[in-house]
Simulated scan of single mutants.
Amino acid sequence: MTAAFKIINSFDAYLKVIHEEFPRTNGNRLYYRGQGKRAEEGFDLKPSVARYPQLKKLSLPQREYKEAEVLETFSNHLLTYVQHRPQTAWEELAIAQHHGLPTRFMDWTTNPLVALYFATRQTEKDNDGARVDSAVYVLISNPKRYADLRRGQAAQVKPAGDAATESATAPEDDAYADFGAEDTTPVESIDDNMAVADSVELSADVGPVELPTPFKISENIIYDPPHVSPRIRAQDGVLLACWNPMQSLDERDYLEIVIQQTAHESIRRRLDQYGVFDKQLFPDLDGIAKWLKYRAFEINGTM
């Protein structure tokens, strides 16, 4: 069970935690993810492709091949629906993620208020119908950024084959020390059956030679997707490419801020006042409809 880093019961308490507990130290960027249900309630921090248990029966190369095959099929249809032709598999996978295809990407944001919106916009219930607390997760492991890798401003990712035989190398910087988190849990190695070298081999000849495709990385990488959606820009969205997508994020990689369900309604009202709500975060007709639904029917407010 993950111990809560902070438990808050108001909008102001959340802002206080963000400003006092998560200063931007050592130039490290912080990323936030809001969830209507907490990880310990069964909503693990893992990408959508991990929600399919049958994939766990495949070896690592077999899963990589399946992901690449699905993306290739998706990409074959892209030109019919988009004006901009994606230049890399990273862009293609970001578009697929945006349109609901299960991928190894996880949605995060650089804006803590956007994360709070996703944590509180709809209060979830447990199996007994009781309202449950939500959470905002703060990523503190400081993963490399795709943009820095392309510009040569970060140490390059290990060769793709290493992922099948050894665990990812921990970052040299101690990202946990700044937050008082103890680094005591050993890094789990990949299951032995995943280390079998199958005959399937994927091409990494996308983008710069030294930069693998999303399916051949050996550590988690932050990706800022271009040309995908106005929603991503409005939400300050980034994607976390998970090198081992079938496993949840290690508890050492994040800290949790629990949002008590009794505060959800007041937080929603404050977020609306600050312009961090449906029509701003979803700049399309869906966002307008969600905002009108909130104003006219959920709180019986003014338009």
Score class of each variant (00 low, 15 high):
115 A>P: 03
124 E>V: 03
126 D>N: 15
126 D>M: 06
127 N>F: 10
129 G>N: 03
131 R>Y: 07
143 P>S: 13
143 P>H: 11
144 K>D: 04
145 R>Y: 11
145 R>L: 09
146 Y>I: 02
149 L>T: 00
154 A>L: 07
154 A>Q: 09
155 A>Y: 10
155 A>E: 13
160 A>I: 00
163 A>N: 02
164 A>G: 07
166 E>R: 13
167 S>C: 09
169 T>V: 09
176 Y>W: 14
179 F>W: 08
180 G>H: 00
180 G>A: 01
181 A>T: 04
183 D>A: 15
192 D>A: 14
192 D>S: 14
193 N>M: 12
194 M>N: 12
195 A>S: 10
196 V>W: 00
199 S>P: 00
199 S>H: 09
199 S>D: 04
202 L>V: 06
205 D>C: 05
207 G>A: 01
208 P>H: 06
213 T>L: 05
218 S>H: 07
219 E>P: 00
223 Y>R: 05
223 Y>D: 01
224 D>K: 05
227 H>A: 14
228 V>T: 14
228 V>M: 03
228 V>Q: 01
230 P>Q: 07
233 R>G: 06
234 A>I: 07
237 G>C: 13
241 A>I: 04
241 A>K: 04
241 A>W: 02
242 C>M: 12
245 P>Q: 08
248 S>F: 05
249 L>H: 02
258 V>C: 01
260 Q>T: 02
